[in-house]
Amino acid sequence: MSSPLLTVSTSPHWLGRTTIRSMHLEFMLALAPALITGFYYFGFPGLSVVLLTVASALVTEIIAVRVTSLPNRIHDLHAVLLGLLLGLILPAGVPWWIPVVGGALTIILGKMVFGGLGNYPMNPVLVAWVALSLSWPEHMNAYFAPVALGSGGDFAVTETPLMALKNDIGSLEIFELWDLWVGNAPGAIGATGSLALIAGGLYLIIRRLIPWQIPVGALLGCVLMSLVAAYTDSRLLEMGMEGLAANLKVAWFHLATGGLMITAFFLAPEPVSSPVTPWGALIFGLGVGVMTVIVRTWGAWVDGAFYAVLLLNTLTPILDRIRPKVLGKVISGAV
């Protein structure tokens, strides 16, 4: 099919300056604070993982458009954005081939088999993340303890706050909440710096690149479900944590740790696989937040944020049916 040379439509005409490429560039700009935080705490091992995923995703996309008849849209930088996102949710201690395989899986399994940008039903980054986690769980748990840049410490694999919480609820009192918010905690390269992620996310919301309903819904769902989980947990009472203030501490902990922030602002509101209507987006966000805490509290996995998004992605077509009421009505009999 060749596109027509001239498209004729009724006025008014308004040529927007936003292109797919500029949108992806702004997404990457919004991810910059998280990347810088990750580089500060996880140093060159972390940075090299991110660079490898980006390179792998880009090369895979170039090869993919060569061998298939799909249109060549490498210049829209979508592959770079996907690689960057995958790199930010990987642990810094993975062997070099995990980001390479991961970048390729993102493009092939997540994006290209469905027909490229705009067609995939689930977030490609998370598809690759799940495949990696199921295949090599021991590598995908190689989280480094943070070492501030320039302090000269050595990196060592350690357990994340969520792993500690799963083993022993008493670890709620070990971690300083402030450390968790600035990212000074063991975890994935770009997912620990909650404040940096919020800054990037606010930029996206202000620029209207993502609907505010999804991150707000996710964070709200997380807080509400954490409170439910805390109130029903008798172990907290034994620890002497009682009342709203103590239970809110559990909620802050869940908000700041694991993959929730990067999920709420970047992975869940992924434009292709999330609902487009305001109410659909809000329900989608709430679902992500609630499922995250359910998996973290009662599930078999340590963190549920990524699985929650994949689950809600499958509901997107249903949520998209929640539409605003159409103005006017059909009068029966009139043709």
Binding site: L109, V113, V130, A131, L132, L134, S135, W136, H139
Partner: peptide
């Protein structure tokens, strides 16, 4: 070589079948 254990699990079966079908 570190085996890609994902393929031996149920989701791996679906993914493989889907790719072959495609």
């Amino acid at each position: 070589y570190e085996p890609m254990g994902f393929l031996l699990k149920a989701p791996g079966a679906f993914v493989c079948l889907g790719l072959m079908l495609a």
